[in-house]
Every structure is written in structure tokens, then in C-alpha cells.
């Protein structure tokens, strides 16, 4: 590497704007995620017909049945593979854009 090149790179790095982004862009506003991003599950209870296909294909045992023949999701086990959303015949499951799911309450991680 020649000295000139090194100087040029150092100067460029100084003037370059940072490559990192702020985590919260504005108060309450999250960093944007792409359209296909797989985040926290959004479940449409009305649309669900209780076919239980999602339970059969879920790789990590997230989904359990409820008394009213619907399903409930325990997100703390979810690996966000979207297989359940793909298999659901009525599109009752969707993987949303919410990725901030850290919480101190276990109940917050149950989607019904």
C-alpha cells in the first residue's frame, strides 16, 4: 500500500458519514424493515378454521390448541421460519414487522 492511498483512505473515512444507523430513528419510530421481514406473529382468530395444519409443520412446538378449537402461539420458542403462515389455508397467520419482542412478562409472548 502506498502512503498516498493510505492518506486518501484515512481522509475519506473521516469525512464519510457513519455506516451505523440509530436504533430508534425518532421517539417511538423503529428502524424500517423490508417487506418480507419475518417478525412477531400476527394471528387473525376470526379467520382460523382450526385445521391444525400449522401445529403439524411447526418445527419448534410453538403452537398449541385452545379450548375453543383455535390455536395459541408461544413466541418465546418461535424461530420465525414462517412455515405456519405458508401452510395456513385461510391466511390466518402472518409474520409481522415487529422485532422488538424482549419483555419481562411471559404473558406478552403468548399470541392468541
Amino acid at each position: 500500500m502506498k502512503l498516498g492511498n493510505m492518506l486518501r483512505d484515512a481522509l475519506r473515512a473521516l469525512l464519510h458519514k457513519p455506516v451505523t444507523v440509530r436504533y430508534l430513528t425518532r421517539a417511538g419510530e423503529m428502524v424500517s424493515v423490508p417487506e418480507r421481514y419475518r417478525g412477531k406473529i400476527v394471528y387473525d382468530k376470526e379467520a382460523c378454521i382450526g385445521c391444525l395444519l400449522c401445529i403439524r409443520t411447526c418445527p419448534s412446538g410453538v403452537i398449541t390448541t385452545t379450548e375453543e378449537k383455535k390455536v395459541s402461539f408461544n413466541i418465546s420458542r418461535c424461530v420465525f421460519c414462517a412455515q405456519c403462515a405458508e401452510i395456513c389455508p385461510t391466511d390466518a397467520i402472518r409474520l409481522g414487522s415487529d422485532f422488538e419482542i424482549v419483555t419481562s412478562e411471559k404473558e406478552d409472548l403468548i399470541v392468541q
Binding site: V33, P34, E35, R36, R38, F80, C81, A82, L95
Partner: peptide
């Protein structure tokens, strides 16, 4: 990867009989 498949590391692109995205 994130744009095409929805995840950075575990893309889950393959499925039986094809690809998913």
C-alpha cells in the same frame, strides 16, 4: 438476504419441491 427471503442468517429459502420466495 433480508430483502429477498426475510431473514439475514436462516433464510429458509428451500422447501420440498422448490423454493419459497
Amino acid at each position: 438476504f433480508e430483502e429477498i427471503t426475510g431473514n439475514r442468517i436462516h433464510h429458509s429459502m428451500n422447501t420440498l419441491g422448490g423454493v419459497r420466495w
